[in-house]
């Protein structure tokens, strides 16, 4: 870990101005920043500590939805009764993320902005595509945890399991930069490696993620998040799925749906194909199965990760049924 100084800006505008400078990196919970520092993958001269900024704090439920300050801890998201009731997928995803100790440190903003866990990217001695090198080693190397969808030229998977749940519920991010503020749908915030392999999102230098806003869920909407992993206790997901399903009570006809996958693509992967399979139809196990199939229609597995295809199908089906409150036979 290199030496650095830590600055505490007086306010949001100054934070943005500092972060626009080269070699300045934002510090929230610090879980990913400290990890990358220890690996020598970042070596900033200055950390800009965001914890002092009041705009980034707080969980505010209201008639117009829910506001999550970027510094909200994952454990707060997981335990909040309003989130549990109205945004179940978000609550479940936060509850499944990481470990109790990490959830007490990690923030929502940091979770969305964390770097990939790809072992080539995180290896201090490997100069991969994401670090300015000339290739993605996962393509021909060890790739059992890598992308089956949206890959190329880099095959990382996006590590956040909160992001798919937030996207399933239509979240947007409010961002403040040196030249003003903007709001962006979270779905559009993440960018594919084909756009630029060196980053995973659209945060510009100097920009601070201030809050995540969730609209009120559509009428009759229920949501769920499920993940499959190698260990029962804490582990990163092999595959995760978030689903929001809004349906008419008796007929079970789906009026609106969002299905967003985790750990299968370089970004949280929304599947309009799967949504199409269920919207306008009464939901049953067969429809859910068809949606699961649709999720992976365009998948291209690498040498060691074809298992993710079967896993995604099953997980998407189960998550859709869970969201809709349908017991699997």
């Amino acid at each position: 870990m290199n030496r650095f100084e830590v600055l505490t800006p007086a306010d949001l505008a100054h934070a943005a101005r500092l972060l626009a400078r080269q070699g300045h990196v934002a510090l929230a919970g610090g879980v990913d920043v400290i990890d990358l520092l220890k690996l020598g993958i970042i070596a900033p001269a200055t950390l800009v500590n965001l914890k002092n900024l009041p705009e980034l704090h707080g969980i505010e439920p209201g008639p117009r939805g829910l506001r999550l300050g970027a510094l909200t801890k994952l454990h707060e998201v997981a335990e909040h009764p309003f989130i549990r009731e109205h945004y179940t997928a978000v609550s479940d995803a936060a509850r499944e993320a990481a470990t109790p100790q990490i959830r007490n440190l990690a923030t929502v903003g940091g979770n969305l902005l964390q770097r990939p866990r790809c072992w080539y990217f995180r290896h201090p001695d490997v100069n991969c595509l994401k670090k300015g090198g000339d290739r993605c080693y996962a393509l021909t190397g060890l790739n059992r945890y890598h992308a089956i969808l949206g890959g190329g030229p880099s095959f990382i998977v996006h590590p956040s399991n909160l992001a798919p749940a937030l996207i399933a519920l239509g979240a947007s991010a409010r961002i403040v930069g040196p030249s003003g503020e903007r709001s962006v749908e979270l779905e559009k915030f993440f960018t594919l490696p084909s756009v630029d392999p060196k980053r995973e999102n659209d945060l510009k230098p100097g920009e601070v993620l201030v809050e995540v806003n969730l609209p009120p869920p559509p009428a009759g909407a229920k949501s769920a998040y499920l993940e499959a992993r190698e260990k029962q206790s804490f582990d990163w997901p092999l595959v995760g799925a978030a689903a929001m399903v809004a349906s008419d009570g008796a007929s079970r006809t789906v009026r609106d749906a969002r299905i967003v996958l985790c750990a299968v693509a370089p970004i949280p992967w929304r599947s309009p194909e799967a949504e199409k399979e269920i919207i306008g139809h009464p939901l049953d196990a067969e429809r859910a199965r068809a949606a699961g199939e649709a999720c992976v229609r365009g998948a291209h597995p690498l040498a060691d990760n074809a298992y993710k295809i079967a896993m995604t199908k099953v997980l998407a089906r189960r998550t859709i049924l869970k969201a809709a409150g349908i017991e699997e036979a």
Partner: peptide, 11 residues
């Protein structure tokens, strides 16, 4: 002038 309330380190 930089709006910095605390500067600590690198030492």
């Amino acid at each position: 002038q930089d709006g910095i309330v605390e500067r600590i380190g690198p030492g």
